[in-house]
Design a protein around this nucleic acid. Structure first.
Length: 678
DNA sequence: GAGCACTGC
């Protein structure tokens, strides 16, 4: 077994010239391993240089000589762009030339590109048109340990592709010790079939692990003696202990959500006024995804000399956002995890203990620029009891769009797809049922054409894809395009600063349209591009998230391009004329609501006299989310975009009034089925 | 009556 034990002394690997990175010494051995083994699992700490150096080693060693590409996938867009920029700089080319990147809405590559960074979701999309990914000689899957659905699917595809393209080289990079699982995955089940082709290739010859040790700085980990009753309070106390007893260095506190973060910040601000004058000021800052870009940027600002920055963050700071200068990490030990219940079709968002892998990732946020400390707000025994990892996303998600995508990739028997971790069969059958009811699959579970294959290509979830493809019949395609773009933003449309909640509420009321949230979203978008001239100023005045609305413009344009590729004509002139005068005009609004019903018939509820809702089965009490226009309005039957259980309540979001008889009209089979069931 | 962890196409 090849196991390269690299220099483990504490060398700061960040911002060092590439020649000084520990990985440089192992260039030849790495190249040898990659040449010899079809699959290489690379264990490398952040800062080991694996993502930036390995592609360059490969390129110089001739892996692109026949015009093929080296592809490096990342789970996130920012990572794909920033790593590409750095490698381009090191290579000494303009990004988009030899080194480029490709993410949704941005393809910065050219015919001279040899090293290409992209999101793993986008590479899966490339497989729709190039099933063997034949443009690539090497594919490196970075941050595979995060186990996103896209990463898992991509690894499954690569394993399949490898059988048909033995010359393809696969590198799987992982920061934690999950390497064995990847190794087992690539070697399992390959014995017999490899024997058939090549007597020399045993499973041991297929894949191997290379370990790039080499940390940055040491981190001192401290535990509680006894469990904390209230970790938010404990976190605040710890902040003051650090501030009064420890040397300089900023603090990063991991909490689970916005409410906790706001409370903690208020508590710190109040207690800070009583601080002894010998201690410098504290600057508490929030960090979570729902903030506007401007609000998020504060955490990167340098504080004045003597002021200590304390960032209270959700899990966004665990992997997605990196803040320099953090010396102390406080870890509450919990995270909000999403899960999907296939029996009820309801998603839950629940506070759950983190995994050991998460705990070590959080601690690692302290030692990036010098030696750091991590304060775990739980006992060492509690730590020992944590699971090694959390269940991968693919085992706790609604799989409708994943299954649809697999079908479009030509994987007919999805149950036999080689998953890194197989999803529970209930999740699979629930997804298949929905896809069948939408008409994306036929009674043999085969992808339908053109409906199913088109739905798979549209980058929105299946119910919205169906709605979009029905829209021409309802003569409201332009409007549904906008609604599809706005709903897929996932909520972050409105924002408010401290104490401005009422101002935000009244801004929102100005855009309200009687029939519900979808038409309200349409109204917001139309006003943004017409009266608001797509400007940030307009958004600030109306408590709208500028970045989100800009994104909606891009999403809408992309969806429109897909439709045009299907030869579906989008007539914009008619709609914009009507909506500049009044979005809420009778017949058009009804067509939109009918059209939404044709895609969202599985998401229906009926209002009760007490103002709550019940789903069709009748069992579950649903509440209109306070962000919804229908929160305090009367309705009878409604459809909704999303359903989620948080804490002890189940909320529905993005709600629109419909008529009961439309359900039977647009989904007769589905409603026959529901009735016969109960 | 009262509030969404995080990604991605």
């Amino acid at each position: 077994m090849t196991d390269l034990d690299l220099d483990s002394s504490f060398i700061p690997a960040l911002h060092k010239p590439p020649s000084l990175l520990p990985i440089a010494k192992y260039r030849d051995s790495l190249l040898y391993v990659i040449e010899t083994f079809p699959v290489t699992i690379v264990i490398g700490q952040t800062g080991s240089g694996k993502s930036t150096q390995i592609p360059q080693f490969l390129e110089r060693a001739g892996w692109c000589s026949d015009g093929k590409l080296i592809g490096i996938t990342q789970p996130r867009r920012v990572a794909a762009t920033t790593v590409a920029l750095r490698v381009a700089e090191e290579v000494g080319c303009e990004v988009g030339q030899e080194v480029g990147y490709s993410i949704r809405f941005e393809d910065v590559t050219s015919s001279s590109t040899r090293i290409k960074f992209l999101t793993d979701a986008l590479l899966i999309r490339e497989a729709l048109t190039d099933p063997l990914l034949s443009r690539y000689s090497v594919i490196m899957v970075d941050e595979a340990h995060e186990r996103s659905i896209s990463t898992d699917i991509l690894l499954g595809l690569l394993k399949k592709i490898r059988r048909k393209r033995p010359e393809l080289r696969i590198i799987v990079s992982s920061a934690t010790l999950q390497a064995e699982e990847f190794l087992k995955f690539f070697t399992a089940g390959s014995e017999q079939e490899v024997r058939k082709q090549d007597d020399d290739q045993t499973p041991q010859a297929i894949a191997t692990i290379v370990s790039l040790e080499g940390r940055t700085y040491p981190i001192d980990t401290l535990y509680l003696e006894a469990p904390a009753e209230d970790y938010v309070e404990k976190a605040v106390n710890t902040v003051f202990d650090i501030h009064t007893q420890e040397g300089e260095g900023d603090i990063l506190v991991f909490l689970t959500g916005r409410e906790e973060i706001d409370n903690a910040i208020q508590a710190v601000a109040e207690r800070a006024t009583q601080l002894d004058s010998q201690h410098g000021p504290l600057q508490p800052l929030p960090l979570y995804a729902g903030l506007s870009t401007e609000q998020q940027m504060f955490v990167f600002d340098k504080t004045p000399e003597g002021t200590r920055k304390v960032v209270f963050s959700t899990n966004i700071a665990e992997a997605s956002v990196t803040i320099d200068g953090i010396v102390h990490v406080i870890d509450c030990g919990f995270v909000k995890l999403r899960a999907y219940n296939p029996k009820t079709g309801i998603e839950t968002l629940t506070t759950t203990p983190i995994s050991k892998a998460s705990a070590s990732q959080r601690a690692g946020r302290a030692g990036r620029t010098k030696a750091g400390k991590c304060y775990r707000l739980y006992t060492e025994d509690a730590y020992q009891a944590l699971p090694e990892t959390n269940p991968p996303e693919i085992q706790r998600s609604n799989l409708a769009s994943t299954i649809l995508q697999l079908k479009a990739l030509g994987i007919d028997n999805v149950a036999r797809f080689d998953f890194l971790s197989a999803p529970p069969s209930e999740l699979m059958s629930k997804a298949l049922e929905l896809l069948y009811s939408l008409g994306a699959l036929d009674e043999y579970a085969k992808l339908t054409h053109p409906l199913g294959s088109r739905m798979a290509e549209l980058a929105v979830e299946p119910m919205m894809a169906k709605t979009l493809l029905s829209a021409p019949q309802f003569n409201c395609l332009s409007e549904i395009l906008t609604i599809a773009a706005m709903t897929s933003l996932g909520g972050n449309i409105w924002f408010y600063h401290d104490g401005e909640r009422h101002k935000m509420e009244s801004s929102r009321r100005k855009f309200a349209v009687e029939e519900g949230d979808h038409l309200t979203l349409l109204n917001v978008y139309q006003t943004f591009i017409t009266k608001g001239k797509k400007e940030a100023k307009f958004c600030h005045e109306h408590n709208l998230n500028y970045k989100s609305l800009t994104r909606a413009v891009s999403i809408r344009a992309q969806l429109k391009r897909y439709l045009e590729r299907f030869n579906i004509n989008v007539d914009e002139t008619l709609s914009s004329k009507q909506h500049s005068s009044n979005v809420d005009n009778g017949n058009k609004a009804e067509q939109i609501r009918r059209c939404l019903t044709s895609g969202y018939f599985a998401h229906t509820a009926r209002m009760q006299p007490d103002g709550t809702y019940r789903n069709v089965e009748g069992g579950t009490i649903l509440h209109a989310h306070p962000n919804s226009l229908m929160f305090n309005r009367k309705a009878d039957w409604v459809i909704f975009y999303e359903i989620m259980e948080t804490g002890d309540k189940t909320y529905i979001r993005d709600i629109t009034k419909i008529e009961k008889n439309w359900l039977v009209e647009y989904a007769p089979e589905f409603y026959k089925l529901s009735n016969s069931r109960g």
